[in-house]
Every structure is written in structure tokens, then in C-alpha cells.
């Protein structure tokens, strides 16, 4: 039977852990709120850009002088770049392992193609580096305070590789923030760009030729897709960590209850034993 002191020590240790998980949960809750605000703030631009792009693309498609935009060029996907957005830190439940599994599945499904990886986030980088995967680039410490200026160069690099036919397609894998308790693994094709569908054609006055505007709009559209993926991923990461730490805190509470009950039983047993000893000692005299 363990001694009372051992059990007390154990309870204290669990309590300390519980305090840490509780603090982590609060920190994540605060960070989640800020990340959610950023997701919401980025929405109007993305929505408006999609609409404008649909209109310009429709106009450029009927323009006989316009050559095809290199970002729309369809090629058989021999060489694929997969952008994987993971977190820099762990302790967020299945957040990172789901992403890594998703990326591995993506590669396994495309045996005939060669897939190289652009890794955003330390967790994904560490995993694929150890396994010697083909890595095109890596970015860490982006998730703290993601700005458009930070992410745009990564998008531009991918577009440049696509234009020079170094790669034939770009896909991105990230966790989308569905709700505080649910993240959704997203696998989206970025290049060649899939144009948003135009609802009602409008007869615009074009200050610049449609094809020229398309050339300017498409790169911005791709950058926004990268930016949005990163924002969603950051919000999802904090939500996942918050949920995981919430569960850890309540597990710790449960454990403390069980240990306290056990401790009381042990103490009671030792008291009973002492009484028996005293009583039987008195009877023997």
C-alpha cells in the first residue's frame, strides 16, 4: 500500500498540471478571439475579389486579342507542389497529425506524379524533414501574427515556379476553422486557378483591357487564397488547443477526485489498523 505522503505528492503534481492546462486554455481562448476577428476582417476583400475576377475573366475570355493567362494553363500534373499549413506548436489535439496524415494520403494517391512540399509551420517541417521528403521550401514562425505581407512572397514563389513550368499544379492542405470544437481538413487546388463562376454578366466599361486586368487580378487572387488558408489555420489551431486543454483540465479534475478518495481510504485503513492494535493490546493484558 502506498504511503499517504506519496498520494499527497501525486495530487499536488496533478494540481500543478491542471493549473498549466487551465492557463493554456485561457491563452488560447484570447488568441482565438483575435484570430477569428482577422478571419472576419479578411472576408469582405476575398468576396469582392472573387466577384470582380469572375467578371473580368468572362470579359477576357471573349476578347479575341487576349492570350491565355499563364496561371490558367492546364498541364498534365507531373510535378505537384503541395503547400502544407501546420502549427508551430503541439498540444492541440489531433490538429497537426490530421494535417500530416492528409498530406501523406495526398502523396500516396499520386504515385505517378512527383510531389514536392512547401511547409508552413514547424510541426509539418519537422515531420517531413525527418522522413527525407522532397521539400521545396519551409516557413516557420508565421502563425504568430500573420500579415498579408508575410504570406504574399510564398504565393509569388509558387506562381513563379508554375509559370516557368517547374511545377504543373499547386495544392494546399490546411485546417479550416468550422467552429470552436470542429476543424475541417481542406485540400484545395490553387494552380491552375479555378475561376469563380460568374452569376450575371455585366457590360462594364473597362478602363484597362480585360486581359491586362486579369493579369493583375489573378496573382492577387492566389495570394489571397494563401492568406485565407493561413488565417483559417491559425484560428483552427487555437480552437483545437483550447478544446484539448479544456479536456485536459477536466481530466485532471477527475483524477484529483479519484486520488483524494483513495487517499482518504488509505488514511481510514491506517486509523482502523491502529485502533485494532490498541484494542487487541489492551485485551491481551
Amino acid at each position: 500500500m502506498p504511503s499517504l505522503i506519496d498520494i499527497r505528492r501525486r495530487i499536488r503534481s496533478v494540481k500543478n498540471t491542471q493549473q498549466i492546462t487551465k492557463a493554456m486554455k485561457m491563452v488560447s481562448a484570447a488568441k482565438l478571439r483575435r484570430a477569428q476577428d482577422r478571419v472576419i476582417a479578411a472576408r469582405p476583400y476575398a468576396a469582392a475579389l472573387g466577384k470582380v475576377l469572375a467578371n473580368v475573366a468572362a470579359a477576357a475570355a471573349v476578347d479575341p486579342d487576349a492570350g491565355a493567362n499563364p496561371l490558367l494553363a492546364q498541364r498534365p500534373a507531373q510535378k505537384i507542389l503541395l503547400v502544407l499549413v501546420t502549427a508551430d506548436k503541439g498540444l492541440a489535439g489531433a490538429f497537426n497529425s490530421n494535417l500530416i496524415k492528409g498530406a501523406q494520403r495526398f502523396i500516396a494517391e499520386r504515385q505517378e506524379a512527383s510531389v514536392s512540399l512547401e511547409l508552413i509551420g514547424r510541426k509539418g517541417r519537422d515531420f517531413f524533414r525527418k522522413r527525407g521528403a522532397r521539400i521545396a521550401g519551409e516557413q516557420i514562425n508565421l502563425a504568430g501574427r500573420p500579415t498579408f505581407q508575410d504570406i504574399a512572397p510564398i504565393a509569388r514563389k509558387a506562381m513563379e515556379m508554375y509559370r516557368t513550368a517547374e511545377i504543373d499544379a499547386v495544392h494546399i492542405t490546411y485546417n479550416e476553422f468550422k467552429s470552436v470544437v470542429a476543424q475541417k481538413l481542406m485540400q484545395v487546388q490553387i494552380l491552375p486557378v479555378q475561376l469563380p463562376v460568374q452569376i450575371a454578366p455585366v457590360d462594364y466599361i473597362f478602363e484597362q483591357p480585360p486581359a491586362e486586368m486579369l493579369d493583375a487580378l489573378l496573382p492577387r487572387y492566389v495570394e489571397v487564397m494563401f492568406y485565407r488558408a493561413l488565417l483559417e489555420s491559425v484560428a483552427a489551431e487555437h480552437a483545437a488547443r483550447m478544446t484539448a486543454m479544456e479536456a485536459a483540465t477536466s481530466n485532471a479534475a477527475e483524477m484529483i477526485d479519484k486520488l483524494t478518495l483513495y487517499m482518504n481510504r488509505v488514511r481510514q485503513a491506517s486509523i482502523t489498523k491502529e485502533i485494532i492494535e490498541v484494542v487487541s493490546g489492551a485485551a491481551a493484558e
Binding site: 470582380v52 467578371n55 473580368v56 455585366v202 457590360d203 462594364y204 466599361i205 473597362f206 478602363e207 484597362q208 491586362e212 486586368m213 493583375a216
Partner: peptide
């Protein structure tokens, strides 16, 4: 500030796209 110079927009303007 349009790409090729300033533009004024008043209510009732025709549909327009510009850089």
C-alpha cells in the same frame, strides 16, 4: 486614383472596372 489618372464617381455611374 485610377492607374491612368484620377476618376470621379457620382451616383448613377455606368458599370466600370479599373486598376
Amino acid at each position: 486614383p485610377g492607374k491612368d489618372g484620377y476618376m470621379g464617381v457620382l451616383p448613377g455611374h455606368a458599370p466600370l472596372l479599373s486598376e
